[in-house]
Amino acid sequence: MSEFLQQLLNGLSLGAIYALIALGYTMVYGVLRFINFAHSDVFMVGAFIGYYLGKLVPEGTLWGGLLVLSGAMIGCALLGMFIERVVYRPLRHGPTLNVLITAIGVSLLLEYTGQIVFGAAPRTFPQIFPTANYHVGSLTISSNQVFVIGVAILLMIALQLIVFKTKIGTAMRAVSLNPKAAQLVGVNNNVVISFTFGLGSALAAAGGILYAMNYPSIDPLMGVMPGLKAFVAAILGGIGNIPGAALGGLLLGTVETFIGGSQFSTYKDAIAFAILIVILLFKPAGLLGKFTIEKV
């Protein structure tokens, strides 16, 4: 039983990070109907901004850690908006496939620029927040795990509030529903799309920092696997659906951890992805997605 609870906790803290990254994929898809493959590399850049900022503040202090976290989030938000402005906006009215290919190009550009700027060798991420281990019965909970889950929940609530309670959130939903109609009623699509990219990238940066805190070895290709998993999580939950992305991330992290702890650990990615296929066979739009019939 205690092993089960421990694995559940491990899985949830991993899944919370997937969920944060998945939110970025899902938001961009919701507004623009395309997959921003560069998102996983924004996640990597977030971790590296954290690495450099972490050297400027004293290690293991709460205010220093929060400063690093918000610094990385702001930095990545700017990066996300910059990528959107320079690369995606000129292509917005072309075929979706063009943007998709460009997104892969931006992803590779970030990865290999990272290898030149940051170096290809892995670096050790500093302990930016104070750490401790708590023992509850036979369960061991590290402060990092609590922190990851806590921050992820807080950010998801904040996101839900932004999308449903603010003016810009209403505009985002309007653009997602029908961009042309939104424009007709006075929504500035460019601003809304920029904002979406900024928000998604800030969440990716937070995910990057939390990931690096838990697994303190970072390198320019670190985003590839978590990015792929988060992408899958977004589809699993129903792409374009914000609570769906969160659910998908938590589910994928938990399943992966449980398989990782069994004797089939070598197959953990294969099994996790096989489960995805099965779910999509029965629910083609994902767990919380709505399947809409396209009229021809």
């Binding site: 694995q7 697994y215 070598t266």
Partner: peptide
């Protein structure tokens, strides 16, 4: 005996099984 692949960063699942 537990296993992992190169480049993995999360080993808590395997370690929890070892602990048990």
């Amino acid at each position: 005996e537990q296993k992992y692949s190169a480049g993995e960063r999360d080993f808590k699942a395997q370690l929890t099984a070892i602990k048990a």
